[in-house]
Computed example of a mutant assay.
Amino acid sequence: MIDQTSVEALRSQSNLAAQLAIKDLELLLSRLPEQAEAKRKVLLEAVPLLVEEYGNMAAVGAEEWYLQMRRAYTTSSFSSVLGEPPAAEVVRSNVRAVIGPLFDTSLPADDALKRTRAKLNQVVERSVKQTARSTMLTNAARDGQALKFARVPAGSETCAFCHMLASRGWVYATKESASTAQKTGKSFHAGCDCVIVPSFGSDDPIIEGYDPDLLYQRYLFGEKELRDRFPGKHPTDEEVAALIRRLLPSIYDPTYQVNSGDIPFSKRQLAPLSDKKIRHILHGDRKGGGHVYGATKRGKTQFPPWWTEKDILGAIEDIQLHGKAILKDGDSLLYEGYSRGVLIRVRIRNGEVGTVFPIRGDGVEKYFPEGNSAEPLLKYSSTDYPDVYGHKFS
């Protein structure tokens, strides 16, 4: 059974091989000769050998994991293989690119070695893990029982770029798709814990913590926002990931501070939502509200036209359970978060849902007081409308 525990086991195997390789690299660095050219020669010869040795260790662990998962789904025989480590010349090229500080006479020797060590550690770690990923991809492409594979984030932290790539979900395991994924090995950055996971059943596995649909919604939202900010521009994946990282600091910013009043996900409870409040939120009344598409309440944001009442009510629950929480004025609680690519705010007053409205996202419009027709929010800058467009609490 492919579950989060199994994925973490695969990640741990690759990490162990990489850590052992780095330990040997540390020993090698402590014994480098004094002469600059001699140092270069030793590193260019020894580092590819380290990568090959420990890359094979990671590959064996990945192969064993692959076969174990396969036996849980099928009884047919299969002759597995180990993935190829990065070519020695590729590793040497990466080594040449990072050992420059060793030959910089303006740097103190200890500082030069420290800088070189950090960069070489990254080269070795990424190369060793690449061999494990290559093993998964190669076998999935050869195995008629492995229908698809996915890049699955693992570990306690994952960057926005990895999430963006993981949003592509389960792709068919063909030689062409595996070859393409292997050629983009550089997309697995230093410190990346993403693993390649095959799917042996007819349905895509459900892995706790891996929701490609949610990740894809984030990607689409970031891409749409960039296109609207810069008409005619075709944003790159790196640019989309950079924007998503800024829009979701609680997920991607290590320095993010938890808001006062934040409630652990495990202790959250849904606030009551009365029929009267539902009418207020959707269609509006004399006090305000009116956020369903077509409500035509001037100055109010509207949910996308394709959102049904059921979609909106489901999103209200989703944001309370998974959104960012903050106390407001000591007597009310705000939740803010994404649901299906739309940023939504939910206000709780006296223990009940009081106000709900979309802030921005694909299909979100607002009837501005100075106009008589709805306009997409993404046309307006954060400078002009900071309370609506900016990722802030007002």
Rank of each mutant, 00 (worst) to 15 (best):
A18C: 10
R246Q: 12
Q217E: 13
V98A: 11
F230A: 04
V128I: 01
R40I: 04
S127Y: 01
S187Q: 03
L214V: 14
P108Y: 02
T131R: 10
T308G: 12
D329Y: 10
N121L: 14
E37C: 09
P272K: 12
C162D: 03
C162A: 09
R126F: 00
G61L: 11
I312V: 14
L165K: 14
E64C: 00
K148I: 11
D275G: 06
G284P: 00
E84F: 11
H280Q: 06
H234R: 14
G55C: 10
V95F: 08
F230C: 01
P254H: 05
G299L: 12
S156F: 02
L49V: 13
L220E: 05
F161N: 02
N121C: 15
G341I: 02
V240T: 10
N259V: 06
K267P: 00
K23I: 10
C192R: 08
G290H: 02
G371F: 10
Q182E: 02
V90P: 00
V51L: 13
I312N: 06
R349A: 05
I251F: 01
R92W: 04
L28S: 08
K300F: 07
L214Y: 09
L343S: 04
G337T: 09
V128M: 10
A112P: 01
L165W: 09
H322S: 12
R279H: 05
S179I: 01
E336I: 11
D262W: 09
A46Q: 15
A141G: 06
Y73W: 08
E352L: 06
Y54V: 13
A38R: 14
M1F: 08
V95Q: 07
K392H: 05
S77M: 12
A315I: 02
